[in-house]
Amino acid sequence: MKNSSSYTAIAYLFLAPALILMGIFTFWPVGYNTYLAFNNYSIAEGTATWNNFEHFKYIAQEELFHNALKNSLLYLLVVPVIQIAALVVAKLVNNKLPGMTFFRAAYYIPVITAISIAGVVWANVYKYDGMLTWLLQALHLVPQGPDGQIDWLGNPDIALYMVMLFTFWKGIGYYMVLYLAGLQAIPGEVEEAAILDGANAWDRFWKITVPMVKPTILLCTLLSTIAAIRAFQEIIVLTKGQADTYTALYYVFDQAFRNYNFGRGAAAGLVVTFFCLMLSAIQFRFFGEKK
């Protein structure tokens, strides 16, 4: 049998492709972003010069960035809604009843659709005379005729929430599958025993299901929080940042590829990264291993 030093060589050999690629495209960008954020980068010459926190000073007083960051944080509202809904839906399709395969697949369809393509369809849902207006008029929730025709993506008071609804629609199937995998690990006897003891569905959900899938809840909440802070692609395909839907990553993207100010974009990106890490740390503290 081989000794452990020969395993070390083979281990690093096997890890090499992953580490090299992640090094170039994941770890290096973090370091390089930090470097760019403190420098003026010239695209033409590829040179960078130290600028004494100029980018940070600039974005710290810029209204546009403040608003973008506010919208990104507001986007976090979607997290609890999508998580509770996904867990409930996963619970519903976890039964051994006919048709469950169909429902699981139906809920997963938005996930396997490209965000750009889904966005084009939803632009028609949100058109002033589109599907949402029709539905609400049919239910008599808004006035009939042109009075009730709301430009869902053009009104700054509601546009961001409409984009959140799109995120909810697009993402719920993804978390449902993760919860489903977690739920299938719960032995059936636990729930049966609770039913015999007379526990109702509400109690069973909160006292059995939720505690037993807690690790999955942590994973999903974490992923969904980061996805909310990074909200950007849904905005680019639905509103292009108009009507007060401009988010922090949209700002990063605009600074880099429209203003060609890579340094300022990187500085804003660093702020977003900081928020992601901070929120992850908070969640680990509150939901993580605690006895």
Partner: peptide
């Protein structure tokens, strides 16, 4: 250390990598 470093990347907003990766 390697495993933790790999998992930690899940917490980074990958869109932020766009600028450096474009340059690379």
């Amino acid at each position: 250390l390697i495993f933790v470093a790999i998992i930690a990347t899940l917490m980074l907003p990958s869109e932020v990598n766009i600028i450096p990766n474009f340059i690379t």
